[in-house]
């Protein structure tokens, strides 16, 4: 564990908590893409299956349980409790165009052809594009509440911090996973134009407007 990975995990946890609080306090999931949240739940489910038979550390186990619980909790709030506020008209990104290629790629490019490794690889590929429905929805609605942009900033920062963690581990000549690194770079690049808008607009108190 290093400071970059710890900050990355905490940024990820912060993003999920910001989203849960936003939905719970405003009792609304307006502007939030349920499809992206659904993809995140798939990512965590496929990746954390080893929860039950490998123990890496208490931190690792606790965080996996928290991420699984909060992602399914968010789905519950969006699709059941506050279903009436879910904006399905703007949440229309075809997620099968993300899931199917991730499955195909995981079967083709992986480190070991075992069920656990294929699922882990699938979760890495899917996570790199899982935010697209949310970014698509923000560009369709043309704007996002500031709390949603804080959520996106924390979520985008998590994998950017992981890139710093991989650089740090490279200097320590620790084992690295090329698949996770390439996918993590792609994932972070997808946030770049949002990061630009966030840093130049939202932090100056303006609304976040994505070019439609």
């Amino acid at each position: 564990m290093n400071i970059f990975r710890l900050l990355g995990d905490l940024s990820h946890l912060l993003a999920i908590i910001i989203l849960l609080l936003k939905i719970w306090n405003s009792r609304s999931c307006a502007g939030i893409s349920g499809r992206s949240q659904f993809l995140f739940a798939i990512v965590f489910t496929a990746r954390y299956l080893d929860l039950f038979f490998t123990f890496i550390s208490l931190y690792n186990t606790v965080m996996k349980i928290v991420f699984l619980a909060t992602s399914y909790g968010t789905l519950y709030l969006m699709y059941i409790k506050f279903k009436a506020t879910y904006d399905s008209n703007h949440d229309t990104f075809r997620i099968e165009f993300l899931i199917l290629p991730a499955i195909a790629l995981a079967l083709l490019i992986n480190e070991e052809f075992t069920v656990i490794e294929i699922l882990w690889t699938f979760s890495i590929y899917l996570e790199s594009v899982a935010i697209l429905p949310q970014l698509f929805m923000v560009s369709k609605t043309g704007e996002a509440e500031s709390i949603t942009s804080h959520y996106l900033f924390a979520l985008g920062s998590y994998r950017a911090l992981y890139i710093l963690n991989w650089i740090y581990r490279w200097f320590l000549t620790e084992k690295l996973n090329a698949i996770a690194i390439v996918a993590g770079i792609v994932q972070t690049i997808l946030y770049c134009d949002f990061f630009y808008l966030y840093l130049t607009k939202v932090l100056k108190g303006k609304k976040l407007q994505l070019p439609a």
């Binding site: 490998t54 890496i56 690792n60 480190e111 070991e112 882990w120 992981y162 084992k175 996973n177 996770a180």
Partner: peptide, 10 residues
């Protein structure tokens, strides 16, 4: 310390 395919990152 980890076998080749144990993923220690979240």
């Amino acid at each position: 310390q980890y076998e080749q395919h144990e993923h220690d990152e979240l």
